[in-house]
């Protein structure tokens, strides 16, 4: 098991290298860092001096190595917009807000999809199934930022139950969490329904029925655990979508997390912050995938890690 975790972490290294390479290339293409630092009216000598100091006259691969060395020592550059603070610090300050939003979204998604998926599968082609399935298709079809705006319109503006935006009140997280979790909830419901239906067709379910077990025992003991495997897989795959959704959701609700920060940083060409967010969020996505894989191996005894 420990070997497996180490092996999985080692596998993350080439992916992270790839991510940093993409970021590095985008940084170089995005404009001359020297000009960004000094401004348009800098003197040519100044520019040349800084260029030398930053090592920008060296071959690209050497620049990339230097860049990687900086990253590894925790130096992600300094933010232009936040008075030259280290970009990593700027981003990390915003991380808890995004983490709580994503956790709420995931929680909503699981709490909605588990019962909805099970009921839909058990009452296949009946009213409960149609209702659950309709909601899940709708959840997939709606752009989540629109859902967010409509939730604001109904529950914040018209009914006044929740705050319109921000994160300062206890109930602030409800609407953004629901917005972020809706797409995932929809997808998980559909997935759980179809994988439960598929599991119910398996030979071992017939065995369980031949044993004289009741329908509820069969579902809880025999079917759900097997269906949980694909459920977990989808959660792992959607980790990335959850982070992506956070960018939009934070914008809609003015939620002060790294998504909102990302948009501000991109708009003001604060590339140090942008690259920090991209790299950090990739690390988060990969870590979530790792956690899901470990959970998966707990549920499925067939997976052996040697």
């Amino acid at each position: 098991m420990i070997n497996y975790v180490i092996w999985r972490i080692l596998q993350m290294i080439p992916i992270l290298l790839g991510v940093t390479l993409i970021v590095f290339v985008l940084l170089r293409v995005s404009g001359d860092p020297v000009l960004l630092m000094l401004g348009e009216d800098a003197q040519p000598e100044q520019i040349e001096a800084l260029r030398l100091a930053l090592g920008l006259n060296k071959p690209l691969y050497q620049q990339y190595l230097m860049y990687m060395a900086d990253l590894l020592t925790g130096d992600f550059g300094n933010s232009l917009r936040y008075n030259g603070q280290p970009a990593l610090q700027v981003v990390l300050e915003r991380l808890p807000a995004t983490a709580s939003l994503a956790a709420t979204g995931l929680l909503f998604a699981v709490v909605i999809s588990l019962p909805a998926g099970i009921v839909a599968a058990l009452k296949q082609h009946r009213m409960a199934d149609h209702i659950a399935s309709s909601f899940s298709i709708l959840g997939q079809a709606m752009p989540n930022f629109w859902l967010g705006i409509m939730l604001i319109l109904i529950f914040a503006v018209t009914l006044g139950w929740f705050p319109v935006s921000g994160s300062d009140k206890p109930l602030s997280v409800v609407l953004p969490g629901l917005t972020l979790g809706s797409g995932l909830a929809a997808m998980l419901t559909r997935m759980l329904r179809s994988s439960l239906l598929e599991v119910m067709q398996q030979d071992y379910i017939r065995t369980a029925r031949a044993k004289g077990l009741s329908q509820s025992t069969i579902i809880v003991r025999h079917a759900l655990r097997n269906a949980a495997l694909s459920y977990l897989t989808v959660i792992g795959l959607e980790a990335s979508a959850l982070m992506a959704g956070a960018v939009v959701t934070e914008q809609v609700f003015a939620w002060p997390g790294i998504g909102l920060l990302a948009i501000q940083a991109i708009n003001s060409r604060d590339m140090a912050v942008v690259q920090t967010i991209v790299i950090l969020s990739s690390v988060i996505v990969m870590s979530m995938n790792l956690i899901v894989d470990i959970l998966y191996s707990v549920v499925d005894p067939r997976i052996q890690h040697g």
Binding site: K211, R225, P301
Partner: peptide
């Protein structure tokens, strides 16, 4: 419900595919 009490108790059944007839996660 009565039939469930018969299955596995008074009549039992074994199937063709031993590879798939047992629950893999139990």
């Amino acid at each position: 419900a009565k039939m469930q009490a018969v299955r596995g108790n008074e009549i039992a059944m074994i199937f063709q595919e031993p590879m798939t007839s047992l629950n893999p996660v139990l």
